[in-house]
Design a protein around this nucleic acid. Structure first.
Ligand SMILES: NC(=O)c1ccc[n+]([C@@H]2O[C@H](COP(=O)([O-])OP(=O)(O)OC[C@H]3O[C@@H](n4cnc5c(N)ncnc54)[C@H](O)[C@@H]3O)[C@@H](O)[C@H]2O)c1
Ligand SMILES: NC(=O)c1ccc[n+]([C@@H]2O[C@H](COP(=O)([O-])OP(=O)(O)OC[C@H]3O[C@@H](n4cnc5c(N)ncnc54)[C@H](O)[C@@H]3O)[C@@H](O)[C@H]2O)c1
Lengths: 213, 213
DNA sequence: TATTAAATGTGAATAATGGAACAATTTATG
DNA sequence: CATAAATTGTTCCATTATTCACATTTAATA
């Protein structure tokens, strides 16, 4: 199997999301140009990305949505949803819990939540199981959880991530404004830094202001 | 002025954040190697990024934190905080409101919030002013707000963004899982798609599983 | 059926990015 | 004062990513 460049994985996973939505609307076919429009990319890019994972259509015809979904699923592993957990059930964590449970799709499924504050574990109402933080490693192992959302205070982020790594997760999604390091090779970390994004936006608006003069 | 590549702006804005934290701790000097460690980047990259915006230190000595902050501020526009607003004060929006207000730094400052539900506008307690959604355009104009966080349901996202554009914002930070288009040229959009990020993480973990065989 | 339009697959060209090397400079030290 | 160590500025090269061009194929239409 060929190595797929990261930007391609990134875009294809969004293509998958778009295909899901189109299919929900009863649409059966879609062109690279249409997909490009949804993604904010050119049709060229879309075709080339798809080309990385094989042949998805036939020249002259649009892509068959069901077929393309299958192809992407097979290459990106969206067939069996990855079991996931949320660590830290504060203001953001509990919002995320509710939000992610409401998203129906094939890539991931939240199956557990953790908080060091036993009070939160006992008072939050949700269909999934919640545990105190000292049980992270044990539970991640037992349920074979693969992904973890880290939503604890920044000072606790690395420690919480470490426990998840010890339990055997393969991916961490970090919501704290700190850099967290995976404990072993083969564990991926992605970070969502909201204040960082705002800072970037502020910078972008400014640099073009200059450039336009 | 030279055009600064986007990845450089991205990283430099994080450097700025790190410098703030170090300065808070009373630290006065920092090397490219140290900054690289905080960023998860090499010292080479850090030096090269800084090189894009000018000369920040002298060979043989570490960077002076105050001086480097000034240089980045000048080029990325972090001197005067950009006035910002939050549109949509639901579960996520109100968490973001509280969170962003607690971050002290120079790039942005939240000054207003909007919601179409008058009840939310009246019941949320916060030091900043809240307005009903029909007053977005007027208020953004009056207060000269430059950035907007879009935190409304996906179906309302484009419309909410349009109102902000009409008011004159220069940047949109989109939290909804949809693509929103700026109404005019010169308005930047960045999106934070949480379920998208989870999907990417799921895909990453999977592709390496394959690659390792 | 012939022709036109629309669509994909694919290789090549171009552009952007990242990484590495090294000269130049300062500080520390004996 | 001389030397060694540490550190930045800057150029060059390799790699990666994007854009483009076009051959090929299908569907629609007159
Ligand atoms: N609230 C936001 O809108 C927002 C936005 C962006 C980023 N963040 C980041 O997300 C993180 C959480 O923010 P929040 O506003 O939800 O904070 P919060 O204080 O409301 O929640 C944090 C939760 O983590 C729990 N916790 C603490 N240590 C823990 C541990 N070791 N293991 C498990 N749980 C632990 C706490 O009991 C608490 O319930 C912070 O790092 C914050 O910087 C928050
Ligand atoms: N909750 C989460 O953890 C989470 C995570 C990721 C993304 N999101 C996205 O963020 C958005 C908001 O999510 P939420 O959970 O806070 O939803 P929510 O329903 O709790 O809040 C939405 C708020 O927007 C207001 N609103 C609706 N139309 C509006 C308009 N035209 N102008 C101004 N305000 C308007 C509503 O009155 C409500 O208060 C959604 O698009 C959701 O997909 C949410």
């Amino acid at each position: 199997m060929n190595k797929i460049p990261f930007p391609v994985i990134h875009r294809l996973s969004y293509v998958f999301e778009i295909l899901n939505k189109l299919e929900e609307q009863g649409i059966k076919k879609v062109s690279s140009a249409q997909l490009g429009k949804y993604l904010g990319q050119t049709a060229h890019t879309v075709r080339k990305d798809i080309h990385f994972i094989g042949i998805a259509g036939t020249a002259g015809t649009k892509y068959d949505i069901a077929g393309l979904k299958t192809l992407i699923s097979r290459h990106l592993g969206f067939g069996i949803p990855k079991k996931s957990c949320i660590v830290g059930l504060g203001k953001l964590g509990s919002a995320l819990l509710e939000y992610t449970l409401a998203i129906p799709q094939g890539a991931f499924r939240i199956v557990a939540g953790f908080d060091s504050n036993i009070n939160r574990v006992e008072t939050i109402h949700t269909p999934i199981e919640l545990f105190p933080a000292y049980r992270i490693e044990e539970t991640v192992k037992r349920l074979q959880i693969e992904l973890a959302l880290i939503v604890v205070p920044p000072q606790q982020a690395q420690e919480a991530a470490d426990r998840c790594c010890d339990g055997g997760v393969t991916g961490l999604l970090n919501f704290t404004p700190t850099v967290i390091k995976p404990k072993r090779d083969g564990i991926f970390v992605r970070s969502i830094d909201i204040s960082g994004e705002l800072r970037i936006l502020a910078a972008l608006a400014y640099t073009t202001t200059i450039m336009n003069e």
